[in-house]
Design a binder for these strands. Structure first.
Length: 386
RNA sequence: UGGGGUAUAGCCAAGCGGUAAGGCACCAGACUUUGACUCUGGCAUUCCACUGGUUCGAAUCCAGUUACCCCAG
């Protein structure tokens, strides 16, 4: 009997080709189009470039997905996790921003929606396996499954998948993970999947889309003007419109002119509504050498007992950083990188790799330099001056 | 109201008689399933504080006006 697979079909080229490959491999494939965001119900008005369009992008994506499913002769379901997305992803997203941190919603979307809510739906509907068009690979063994980077290292998406459970991984297929993007497009071309073959890669928050980000946040978090202070001289160098809208390492949107070159955000005081910046991208205030990562999801059954030498990414598409990590408890690791890495941001994810294997990842809680938290360094600098 | 100095795009800032460098900011693209970073392009068609003058030709020289700064009082 053919294995039943439920494939998330987004209306993009990757999942379309994944559908074809699964079918070729002899699976009994059903497709599902997911809708997780309702712009009107979710008050996603400001900063939304398509809010006035006649055809909303989601429906266009559905039409494109439908065309693919029809072309391949596969059934297409529609599923709706708008409530789950709001409750499990977006609520957390906003609460993190309110704390002055910078969350990564797409990692939560994979954890709670695609590989949890959607996975449960699949099981209820009698599917053995879930598939998606991610650039990632799974290696199944008798006891566990490993997640490997996608073969196209320019498109590798394991970073976003670091929080899915071992159990979910065991029931997952990534049909295009061994391909490179241009091969996927070629296949789509060859199969005459006209609706998606030349479609531009989607960007922005998954299921929400490209937004003017500051305006997007303003739909949910109030503006509150304040000062921008140079952490070096402690002089006011500009004004901001809301400390929550900026992130560590950010250059654009500060509006600071003058002759000192570009400025970068190094920290913020949410209470006092002050944004701290530094001059030049080589500034010491941007570089840290260790951090604490919490809520770690580790794919292997056993946690390493000793310090482990591996590599890490602190943001998507960042080059691998050489690190050593040590578990301080079963969900928390201390990550060290004495060479120094710039702009590591609390709330973002640190994801660990051993060569091609994605080991797991967790949320960056606190960032240190020479044993002192970057936040403390800022606080100390400010209080020493006053 | 003595003397000296400076006035160039939103902010800095080159230019010193031959027809407006550069940086920051900003805007637009590219890159990108988060936020960022990065890259590329655009950004004073000339009233270069203002008004006259010299010159084939001035932001650049001269005179006056105005504003600000500094040193003296």
């Amino acid at each position: 009997m053919k294995q039943k697979v439920l494939l998330g079909l987004s209306g993009g080229v990757d999942s379309a080709v994944a559908a074809y490959l699964l079918k070729e491999d002899g699976y009994d494939v059903t497709c599902a189009f997911m809708r997780n965001w309702d712009s009107y119900a979710n008050n996603d008005i400001m900063g939304n470039p398509t809010i006035q369009d006649d055809v909303c992008p989601q429906e266009q994506d559905y039409a494109d997905a439908k065309a693919v499913a029809d072309k391949l002769g596969l059934p297409l379901l529609r599923v709706d996790f708008v409530k789950e997305y709001w409750d499990n992803v977006f609520t957390y997203f906003l609460s993190e921003y309110k704390k002055g941190r910078t969350p990564n919603p797409d990692i939560l979307c994979n954890k709670y929606i695609k590989f949890d809510a959607f996975m449960k739906f699949a099981k209820q509907q009698g599917f053995d396996t879930l598939a998606t068009g991610h650039y990632a690979q799974v290696r199944h063994t008798s006891t566990t499954s490993e997640m490997l980077r996608g073969a196209d290292d320019n498109k590798d998406q394991t970073y976003f998948l670091c929080q899915i459970t071992q159990d979910a991984l065991q029931h997952t297929l990534f049909p295009i993970g061994h391909l490179e993007k241009h091969e996927v497009r070629q296949l789509a071309e060859k199969l005459a999947l006209a609706s998606v073959a030349e479609k531009k890669d989607s960007t922005g928050i998954c299921f929400i889309g490209e937004r003017n980000f500051r305006e997007f946040l303003q739909n949910y978090l109030p503006s509150k003007e304040g000062t921008i202070v140079d952490i070096e001289s402690l002089e006011t160098v500009g004004k901001h419109v809301g400390v929550l809208y900026y992130t560590i390492g950010q250059r654009k949107g500060l509006g600071i002119g003058g002759n000192l070159g570009p400025w970068f955000v190094v920290g913020k005081d949410v209470e006092k509504n002050i944004l701290y910046v530094t001059n030049g991208n080589e500034s010491d205030w941007l570089y840290s050498d260790s951090c604490i990562v919490s809520g770690v999801n580790w794919f292997a059954n056993e946690l390493p007992k000793e310090e482990l030498i591996c590599s890490a990414k602190f943001r998507y598409r960042q080059k691998d950083n050489a690190v050593s990590i040590r578990f301080v408890d079963d969900k928390t690791v201390l990550v060290r990188y004495p060479q120094g890495v710039s702009s590591i941001t609390c709330g973002q994810e640190a994801v660990f790799y051993d060569q091609e294997v994605c080991l797991g990842g967790g949320v960056i809680e606190e960032v240190f330099k020479q044993g002192e938290s970057m936040q403390h360094k800022i606080n100390k600098r400010v209080s020493n001056a006053s």
